[in-house]
Structure formats: C-alpha cells, structure tokens
Design a protein around this nucleic acid. Sequence first.
DNA 1: CGCGAGATTGATGGTAATCAACGAACGTGG
DNA 2: CCACGTTCGTTGATTACCATCAATCTCGCG
Lengths: 231, 231
Amino acid sequence: MKTEDVDAVRQLPLFQDARKETFAKIMRGVLLQRFPPGVTLITESDTADFLHVVVDGLVEMFATHGGRETTLSLVRPVGTFILAAVLTDQVYLQSARTVLKSRLLMIPAAHVRAAMGTDEGFTRAVVAELARGYRCTIKEVKNQKLRSGAERLANWLLQESARSGAGAAVELDVEKRKLAALLGMTPENLSRAFSTLRDYGVTSVGPAIRIGEPEALAAFARPNPLIDGPE
Amino acid sequence: MKTEDVDAVRQLPLFQDARKETFAKIMRGVLLQRFPPGVTLITESDTADFLHVVVDGLVEMFATHGGRETTLSLVRPVGTFILAAVLTDQVYLQSARTVLKSRLLMIPAAHVRAAMGTDEGFTRAVVAELARGYRCTIKEVKNQKLRSGAERLANWLLQESARSGAGAAVELDVEKRKLAALLGMTPENLSRAFSTLRDYGVTSVGPAIRIGEPEALAAFARPNPLIDGPE
DNA sequence: CGCGAGATTGATGGTAATCAACGAACGTGG
DNA sequence: CCACGTTCGTTGATTACCATCAATCTCGCG
C-alpha cells in the first residue's frame, strides 16, 4: 500500500483520533483494493470478516427475501459499512455491491475489535460512527412509514441537491431503478412520481434533474430534520 | 433508591461488566421512577438528557410527522432506549410513552459519556447494546420493504409466540391499534390481516390469539432469521 | 444498422388507506 | 343494578396508491 494512501486513510474520521500504535496495528493485514462496477463485495448471512471503508466510488447496500430485492442505502466516500456486524462478530444482514468503480479499504474484523478498548480515541470514533448509522436507519424507517412515494422522492431530491452542492441541477449517479428501490417503490412508480413532481417544477432529461421551483417542491415535500437530515 | 434495586440494576447487561467505581459514579444522580400507563417520557426533537432503561413494564417508541403517528418499537424489560442520541449528544428522533405501569431507570447522559473511555467493560457493553439496536432497526426496514402487511403480522405472531414462550396461545399486551402501527398498517387493515390468517389456523378472541396450525402459518409467513430474529 | 438494457407509458388488478357505520366491552354516575 | 357514554374493534363501501404486465421508446454500443 502506498504511503499517500496510508496518509489518506489516517485522515478518515474513524482513525483521526486513534493513537499511532493502534493505527499501525490495524493497518497490518489491511487491504486497499479497487473494484469495477457491479461487483458483489459481501453477501447477507456471511460472517463478518472485514470492516469496509469506501475510500472512493459508490457502494450499494441491499437485501433480498423471497425473490425480492431492495436497496437499503448508498455508501459514498468516506463511509463505512457493516460496522455493527463486525463489532458483535455476527453475520451480515445486508449485501453490498459496487455501483461505480470503487476503492475499498478492508480491515480484518479481529483487528477492529482488538483495537477497541485499548484506544479511547478510536473507540469514541467507532461509537460515533455506529450511532450515526443507527440514527440514519431510524430516519429511514420513519421515512418509509410516514410518507408516500412521491414525498420520499421529493425529499430525496432536496437532500441530494444540498449534499452535492449542485443547487437546482441534480445529476443522478445511480440508475433510476436503484433509486426506485432505495425509495421503496418500483421503477414504474418512480417514473410516475417524477411526473407528479412536474407540477412542482421538477423536470428531468435522462439522469439530469432540474428543481425549477425549490420553494414549491419543499412545500410539497415538507422536509423534516428528524427524518431527512444527513446526520 | 433501595439496595435491592441497586443490585438489580447492577445485574443489567449494560452494567454487569462495569467496574465498581464506574457503576458507583453512574449511580450518583440516577433516578429509578415509576410511571402509570400512557405517560409521555420523552419527545422527539428534545435534547438527550437521560439514558432510559426499562426495568419493568412496557414502553412504546413512536414518531410523528405531518399529523401522522407511527409506532417504531416496543421496549420490554430489560431494554434501553435512545442510547444513540445520548452518546452523540443529539436530539431524540423518537418519542416514548409508557404502555403499562412501568419502572424506569434514568441515567444522566453526561454520566454515560463520562464513563465511556474510562471503563473498558462498560464501553463494550454500550457498543454491544448500540450494535444490537442498530441491527434490529435494519431488520425493521427490511421487514417493511420486503413483506406485505399480512406477512408482517404472521411473522410477528410467530416471533411473539417464541418470545413469550406461550406456544400456540399468544396474549397481546398492547392494543391492536398499536400493533397495527408497529406493523405499519391501519387498525382496519390489521383486522383484515387477521381474517386472512384465519385460513392458516389463526383465531382470536379479543386479545387472546391462538395459532392453530403453526406449520401452515410458518409456510405463509416464511420467517427469515435475517429479518425476524430477536437479535 | 440492429441489438439490448433501461426508462417510460398505458392498462389492469391488488393492496392498503379512508370514511362511515355498527357492535362489544368497560367505567361512570345515577 | 342499570342507563349511558366512551373507547376500541370490526365490517362494509369507496377511493387512492402501488405493483404487475405489456408495449413502446430512447440511447449507447457493437
């Protein structure tokens, strides 16, 4: 692994406050690997071997049941996934696959568990990350149970606009079918939700979305920091 | 606070492995309080002041948005709630109210945060509890997105039967309207879901449910340890 | 140019929400 | 002890939303 990569990893929120020795110990046996799009990284019900960090690219978390599949979340740099399974040494509840060409840091689960308890700074970072993920998931349940499909799309657009900093012009970096699954609907219904939002100034050409009247869209979406916040 | 209560608290998973001093420190300023049914304990968007532990009784976690309300979970003894908000010193994402007469242990949030890092055993217990809650919530999202209403009810019945150890006779300890909200449907639809399950041997008289043909019900429900497990 | 994957649109059926009415259970006060 | 009111649960009718199936369209690519 290159020195510059090691330095980049050192800057990750998870490791910033870790002691030098802890970091060095964790880095032994670590893998920093590139993957093409569409590669399955982990599969639900497998035992947790590695903590994964998305250094670059985009990863989709998904789950299946009885022939159906749904997207649970998208993990962007610099995010981690399956931390909970790693910490408690249990099986994965989710599967993961790359959406774009991605670079992933893979840390042996045993190293993470060993580092906890010996390093307060690292432990705090782990707890913070775990709590963040937990709260995001609770928001997701509220989003699902308290809003309609079109409302979820409207709020997703507002959030995405804020996140990417692109203002009124939002560019999708995932297929619409994945967005549909993420929002808990079928691709067909996503199309219809988009045409519903035309009444509130949302227009789209392929993956390029324009939010023509942000106030009108927000009035329809009724965003709520207790559901939408990026945390 | 009585000695026997202190001893009982000491036995909680969260404190079992804590050092003596840590436990003593946390216990200063702790409240062990009784509440009648229907009391609102915390409200979403309030800042996290106390970590709550349900010592006895039953607590409902719920959330509201735009005039709607949904039940997110039921917390039974000996469970905690809003641990994530306490650890990261943020606002609650959920509200809580007692369903039954309950006894609650309330630990000042600052004490919990202070104890972390100085006590490895306690920290591990906190992390374990946090990870458990996280995983339960992920299961809940999968439950919502991958199953129909009747399937959610069927699986809930099977799980409840296993949890309470009552075998084929399940006794509801919450109103059906709350169960409906927990399962993500209206009370009317819960009624209809129950009549759907009659075809699979489920009969009910008031709050007393009988699972007449467990195999038939399971065949319909298709339980999945990656969704249903009690964790 | 032709192919294939994804996106869209239309038609249809099913599931769930809503509105309304009725009935049972319980508690209160007469 | 009973009349009454309230709350909860159930049932029916209706509507809205969403899933499914099918067909067409678009775009990128060989």
